[in-house]
Write a protein that binds this DNA or RNA. Structure first.
Lengths: 181, 181
DNA sequence: GTCTATAGAACGATAGAC
DNA sequence: GTCTATCGTTCTATAGAC
């Protein structure tokens, strides 16, 4: 992305892959720098601590999510926006490196008082905001909250059951709850 | 439970509290034995390793879940069984030590190849089996899979948003998806 | 006596930090 | 690449219950 910081970008990319697939606590610093192909000093030149690398990883994932939301919102009407969103989730769930929602995983691992946890709350707001725009409703409306339930259930279910069909089930629920509202 | 092993029971109880609230990796052995009020040797007399204590904690949680399922299944008809279940979830979500689903949290932390992870799969089967019995359907039916989505979304949403209303939203979804099926 | 408990020191490995 | 802290684990020593 920014050629001015190749080491930093390589570190975030390596961290994103490893933290997401293996978990944050289960991934050591050495493994990250080995995959990034940078020296250990480069890590501490760009980040004050592992926690800040974790935060950078989550902010990067948040940015990807925001782009995904924007693409789905370009669809013309609520049902096609929701379908577009859950179709993309389903496609992601079929990948062999799929490991659920990175924010849900991080939430289970991180101390809520950890500064990186604030990114999780940001994602939560961004997700509710996306659903609200998608169905033209308020971010705190029951319909939006039900859609959030569908999203969470879809990704976690697909993860623990290794079954992408769960995403389709959740999409059915989401479409039904919208048309019902 | 068995008075012949007071130290073991105290260890599991302490581990259940700490592992659930703080996470497994974030909780050290010393903290567990301090809360249990037992010596370190008692831990390794009853468990071969920390991993086995983790497995015991998860099996204990699974037993509690099975009892909860059985109580809900004593209700006379599907809607009241589902209501009973989600009402109990909602009550749990209002507790100040609520931290979501212990199995979902453990799934995010543990290596899938960890022997303790088999308990997570057991819970998954037990949950699907409960919903199947609750609505008189097959454990792998779409309706049951949608109910699992509701359960997962309910607990995770209530956790990250600190908002027990999410459980009520999920209960609405669950009742609706059943009556629709 | 044997089993299980407690208290604490000490070891080896790992992981984060500089 | 080195330093240091921490964590899981093991060992020594001792006391109480059946």
């Amino acid at each position: 992305m920014s050629p001015a910081h190749p080491a930093r970008d390589r570190l975030v990319a390596a961290a994103a892959d490893l933290f997401y697939r293996q978990g944050i606590h289960a991934t050591g610093i050495d493994e990250v720098i080995a995959r990034a192909g940078v020296a250990k000093a480069s890590l501490y030149n760009n980040f004050a601590s592992k926690d800040e690398l974790v935060a950078a990883y989550l902010r990067d994932a948040l940015e990807r999510s925001r782009r995904l939301f924007a693409e789905c919102l370009s669809e013309p009407d609520p049902p096609s926006r929701l379908r577009s969103f859950f179709d993309r989730l389903a496609a992601g769930a079929t990948r062999d490196d799929f490991a659920g929602c990175p924010f849900a995983n991080a939430a289970a691992e991180l101390d809520p008082r950890d500064p990186a946890s604030s990114v999780l709350a940001e994602f939560d707001r961004a997700l509710a905001d996306f659903f609200a725009r998608a169905i033209d409703d308020a971010p705190d409306s029951p319909a939006v909250r039900r859609l959030v339930v569908c999203y969470v259930g879809a990704l976690h279910g697909a993860k623990v059951r290794h079954d992408p069909r769960v995403v389709a089930d959740a999409a059915d629920l989401a479409l039904a709850t919208w048309s019902r509202a």
